[in-house]
Design a protein around this nucleic acid. Structure first.
Lengths: 258, 258
DNA sequence: CGCAGTTTTGATTCATCTCAATTTGTGTGG
DNA sequence: CCACACAAATTGAGATGAATCAAAACTGCG
């Protein structure tokens, strides 16, 4: 696995700046976090950042397979992924379910819960993960004081809406291989934004979870992977993906289905 | 067409309360609007409502077929549908497009634009319509002062996210007839919430637009309508729909595809 | 009244699903 | 450390739901 970290990893975060490791600095650390530019604090000044530090409460570890929250749980906080990988999914009464998203470091989880003050989907860790807890009441309070924070929080929610539209587009108009290509390119780009390789990465989710997200059966996902490999676009070995021809993958998207 | 208005229609709104028809009272009228409980002002006190009146700027008429905004337009305002009916859609470079939603009275349009300060989809009137313009800068300002407004605006955005998840579920896991049943029941319920008949209504969109929204071809939509009619679930006459057996329609949704 | 756009309906094709068997990988406990 | 069991992934063959292509019927507008 060739994932190159752009910055010192979280554990060294405090040490790097020679800040005493008090309980507080462990609990709260937006101002020390290397995900600032991706996460909620984006665009804040030094002093504003200090105030957000008081907002972000404890961290919470979530082991692989464990739920961060479940549909129906009372809504109290937004979560920022500090490390690890999550999926969110919705369940229908008859047992069918749909993965609605995958979240990685710096991305926010739980905004679906604001509407009815209860979560409407499940959030499950796909690997051992850690999240920062952002109590919603306090976020509201602080964002009414710090205009930049308010603005950015709105942008994050809006971005989620735009992302969902993209998924609707994908599900509504694309064929199987286009969907998978779009999915891989999206992951690639997000890994890159986090300082990892955009060409080589490890899938944290199963074929079934990919299929659920893309509105396909796991066999179809597997076949599409194999086909991409035969065509020399990617190299697949189980969950390990290497993108060999990103350009060709992109072209797959822009081409009308004959 | 049997749409029963619950309250005097908008045109009589001012007259009903014997308020002089100054330019201002025409421009601004949340406090006089019969959509209060559905729209942005939900849950506000009398005095707060008065302040929102100053926020909501001019109305804007949009003729059938005209754009309210286009993808790429700079984002400046949110719109509340006062009367009429809209669709929003996203376009792919290759010409494919996907309807992402239909909006009726009391629903907000344009929140997708916040993220990148430009609209990311097109909004088109499906009948002669009127919207209230809510300048975003001012909405931000006021919502940082009025906590109830802030809370409610967040809820509206969150509800949009939840709605999108529902559409993703529909596109990802349901078969054609389930999708159409879900669509009809959703419309029915929204018409009811606005004081119109839930059993009988007029579709403002074409079969093609329904199909685009549901990820189906227009012929498939048409066939599904015919099939529902044969089964005695609905009566269809072009765009006029009468729901004869809502229970059976609901059951269609909860049944696993064999 | 006629024409264009919309809708319905039919026949056929095709992409994806389903079912099934096999292979590969992973974790556990003796 | 190996063997076993279990989960995940691959691959094939056949079934099927929706798409496509095509034609006819209906609607409403100028």
């Amino acid at each position: 696995m060739t994932q190159i970290k752009r910055q010192p990893n979280p554990k060294n975060c405090g040490e790097a700046k020679v800040i005493p490791l008090t309980l507080n600095s462990l609990k709260v650390a937006c101002s020390q976090c290397n995900l600032q530019e991706l996460c909620l604090p984006l665009g804040l000044s030094e002093t504003e950042l200090g105030r957000v530090d008081t907002l972000v409460g404890a961290r919470r570890k979530v082991k692989r397979g464990q739920h961060l929250y479940r549909a129906g749980d009372p809504f109290e906080a937004i979560y920022a992924v500090k490390t690890g990988f999550f999926k969110t999914d919705v369940l229908l009464e008859d047992g069918r379910d749909q993965v609605t998203g995958f979240q990685m470091a710096g991305e926010l989880l739980g905004m679906d819960g604001i509407s009815v003050e209860a979560h409407t989907c499940n959030a499950v860790a796909l690997e051992d993960s850690e999240v920062c807890l952002i109590p919603y009441e306090q976020l509201e309070e602080l964002s009414s004081e710090i205009r930049t924070l308010q603005r950015h929080f709105h942008k994050v929610m809006s971005r989620e809406i735009v992302r969902d539209h993209g998924v609707m587009m994908l599900l509504g108009t694309m064929r199987a291989e286009e969907r998978l290509a779009a999915f891989l390119l999206n992951l690639s780009q997000r890994f890159m934004a986090r300082g990892y390789s955009s060409a080589e990465f490890h899938l944290r989710m199963t074929r079934e979870e990919i299929g659920s997200y893309l509105g396909l059966k796991l066999e179809t996902v597997s076949r599409a992977f194999s086909h991409f490999q035969e065509a020399g676009l990617i190299a697949v070995q189980q969950k390990h993906i290497r993108i060999l021809d990103a350009t060709a993958l992109k072209q797959l998207l822009n081409r009308q289905p004959i």
